[in-house]
């Protein structure tokens, strides 16, 4: 096993620990950490943020949505070759807000690593970074083996908003951690290794060095399309479906959960006003 493979496997096996450490560090350094489920929620979040701060968005909410999808296509889409390797960051209203994608997150330093992004003038007022939860590395020194995989003319480590006395730099730094189906991959022993991917692009056809053989983190890139295409294995969904299955076999519990479920569905899909009463309630009342 190569070093990068070993370290990535270790991170994934202890992902909750390293995310918690990162969160604690970055928060202590003045950053904000937000957890979201997927691109949809990222778009909603950005929409809210821009509205709240009165930052005009050319192209409106739709363009934020498209950008969120580019930043967070999910790890599978990337491996299928369906997403750009280096999503462009988006800058709004002359530096009022910049939305970027992270290359790595470093737990011990509470640092966000961006590649290929020139900090430019004084930097944005609000810097938002979107990152999949799998991007964490334990320590700054791990970069000695990982940075060479992502060569870039500008590599930046953001460790918080501007400090007291600093004359420029973002006044706010917000890290958005996105699940985007990763927790399900994580729960599947056969597919967890896909999350080791660091998006170096070596395996993608048409890229320099492409060829599908020498993935630095030991992902079987030859068999990859197959593994992505195959119907999701049993383990997918794991405990969530076990809980779901339990509730669905207990009509009373199901009905009780109904109210909450409707609220949950509204959140999940952004459904407008779910009905106040379920069918079964309405039916019962109608039959009286």
């Amino acid at each position: 096993m190569t070093k990068p493979t070993e370290i990535r496997s270790h991170v994934l096996a202890n992902l909750d620990h390293y995310l918690a450490e990162l969160d604690k560090q970055l928060t202590a350094q003045g950053g904000t950490v937000v957890y979201l489920r997927g691109a949809d929620e990222v778009a909603d979040y950005l929409e809210l943020l821009t509205r709240e701060r009165e930052i005009p968005v050319p192209g409106g909410a739709e363009s934020l949505r498209r950008h969120a999808e580019r930043l967070e296509p999910g790890v599978e889409a990337y491996l299928r070759g369906e997403s750009p390797a280096d999503p462009e960051s988006l800058e709004l209203a002359d530096g009022a807000l910049r939305i970027s994608a992270a290359a790595f997150l470093i737990a011990d330093a509470g640092a966000i690593c961006l590649t290929g992004e020139h900090p430019g003038g004084t930097g944005p007022k609000i810097q938002v970074v979107v990152a999949g939860i799998e991007k964490v590395l334990p320590r700054m020194r791990d970069l000695a083996v990982f940075l060479p995989l992502l060569p870039s003319d500008t590599t930046r480590f953001l460790t918080g908003p501007r400090r007291a006395g600093e004359l420029d730099g973002p006044e706010e730094l917000c890290l958005i951690l996105v699940d985007g189906g990763r927790s399900e991959l994580l729960a599947s022993p056969e597919r967890r290794d896909l999350l080791r991917c660091v998006r170096c692009g070596a395996c993608l056809p048409g890229r320099v060095g492409g060829g599908g053989v020498d993935c630095p983190v030991g992902i079987d890139t030859e068999g990859l399309p197959l593994r992505l295409r195959e119907e999701a294995p049993l383990e997918v969904g794991g405990w969530k479906f076990r809980l779901w299955g339990y509730v669905m076999r207990k009509p009373r519990l199901y009905e009780f959960a109904g109210q909450m479920l409707r609220a949950f569905w509204r959140e999940e899909w952004g459904l407008p006003a779910p009905p106040a009463k379920s069918f079964r309630q309405a039916w019962r009342e109608g039959k009286k």
């Binding site: 640092a111 900090p119 400090r163």
Partner: peptide, 9 residues
């Protein structure tokens, strides 16, 4: 690294 807000290469 933590002593400042950003380090760049």
């Amino acid at each position: 690294f933590e002593s400042s807000s950003e380090t760049a290469l």
